[in-house]
Design a protein around this nucleic acid. Structure first.
Lengths: 232, 232
DNA sequence: AAGGAATCGTGATATCAATCACATGCCGAT
DNA sequence: ATCGGCATGTGATTGATATCACGATTCCTT
């Protein structure tokens, strides 16, 4: 498990868009990349850096964020295994738009930008997968825009985020509406364009109104339709 | 000029990412699509509709927007010639995320989703172009997120939008900082998550402070660095 | 040219949330 | 067990802006 395994015998093989190529393509892909390990809090790349490589996240979670000169931080999302980090920057030939920072130990497959482009040129199937992967990225960015801009109030934006978490963490055979809250109030504030204190107050109010319940890191949405109404 | 011309003799040929394919591919592409004309205010597709087709915008401008149940409207952007509308939805096999509505007479090349996917499968170069096109879409959506979430005030968001306009409308050989404001205050409000009245007041204040000047639809940014500071 | 609709300008008021300040709680390290 | 540091809870105050209301302007149609 700890040995430097390749994509072919990776436990995630076939589970993700980019890890589901046919054997020969995956073999080639495997050979042009390097497996890299990060501890918690490692910086994979920074906003504005030249996009030298793209990174396939094999395991672990990565925080993607952007910062303004004034120091305000916006967390876009927490990326999970299977996501391809920096792909859109590589394709658009632009610097990285975000900073990518591990929030737990991670394994990544790192590929030089040019090597990836060459690989995509020679593998039509892979380039379609790349296109689909970016389409996913787009979809996520778009729903971020929606969640930030449409709700009129801070509570609405927080409610929208909680709903998104329950949706993306939904596990079959489990009661609906559960998710694990691994972020601090400060970080939630950075995802909802508000402040730490407001997040504390909003979550407190939602608990008092019995719309959610929180036990440690386990959050349960009790009244999804009510949250929907706030989030709109 | 008014006749039903194809992609090969289109005046925009070679000007845009997707219109720059080599002759044989472009010929094939031309044959699987239909040229469609819209007047002003035509709806190309609606948010939530099944994504049956993608649309290459040959000429004219198209407003992309999303609406909340409560009736709040968010305008994401005004698309211009060369953009491929609905591409990310087609690739992700999802309903359209936005509503596309012409703001002036437009010509579009419409291609059935499946026909496009087949075409991309057979044309590696085209699928790379598709990937790049989605990467552009992503970049635009991301900068939208930034503009909405990072500035602390409504003036900051409006300032950011004005700067973006001057950047994207920048014409060589012309004085910097000019752009044409074709949107109403109401529409600007929908792009900056604020209200019509606030947009009126912010623009008025910027004029009074000599940071911008407005003559009819012609807007000139006089102090870009000041606006940058507000926008952060 | 006139009328009507859309757009813009502006004041008054109410509300929401940012900010500041500090108390409390929690957890890991010594 | 105790300390220190980080995260969370909460009050008071202030400022920004949404909202409501209405008048003025511009644009488009007839």
């Amino acid at each position: 498990m700890e040995r430097n395994q390749g994509c072919l015998d990776c436990p995630a093989r076939g589970k993700h868009l980019f890890c589901s190529m046919e054997t020969s393509a995956l073999e080639k892909f495997d050979s042009i990349g390097t497996l890299v390990q990060f501890g918690s809090g490692g910086v994979i790349f920074r906003e504005g850096d030249n996009c030298g490589s793209v990174h396939v996240l094999c395991s672990g979670r990565v925080k993607l964020s952007a910062t303004s000169r004034e120091g305000r931080t916006l967390i876009l999302k927490i990326a999970r295994a299977g996501e391809v980090l920096g792909l859109s920057a590589a394709l658009a030939n632009q610097p990285y738009e975000v900073t990518a920072e591990t929030v737990e130990p991670c394994r990544l497959k790192t590929i030089r930008r040019q090597a990836l482009l060459d690989f995509l040129d020679r593998n039509p199937d892979a380039s379609m997968r790349a296109a689909r992967a970016v389409a996913q990225e787009y979809k996520a960015a778009f729903s971020e825009v929606r969640r930030l801009a449409l709700p009129a109030t801070a509570s609405g934006r927080v409610a929208g985020l909680l709903l998104e978490w329950t949706r993306e963490q939904a596990v079959p055979n489990t009661r609906q509406g559960r998710c694990t809250m691994t972020l601090t109030h400060e970080e939630i504030a950075s995802m909802t364009a508000t402040t730490r204190e407001t997040v504390t107050r909003v979550l407190g109010q939602l608990k008092r109104d019995q719309l959610i319940s929180i036990r440690g890191a386990a959050l349960t949405v009790l009244q999804p339709q009510e949250l929907e109404r706030m989030a709109v």
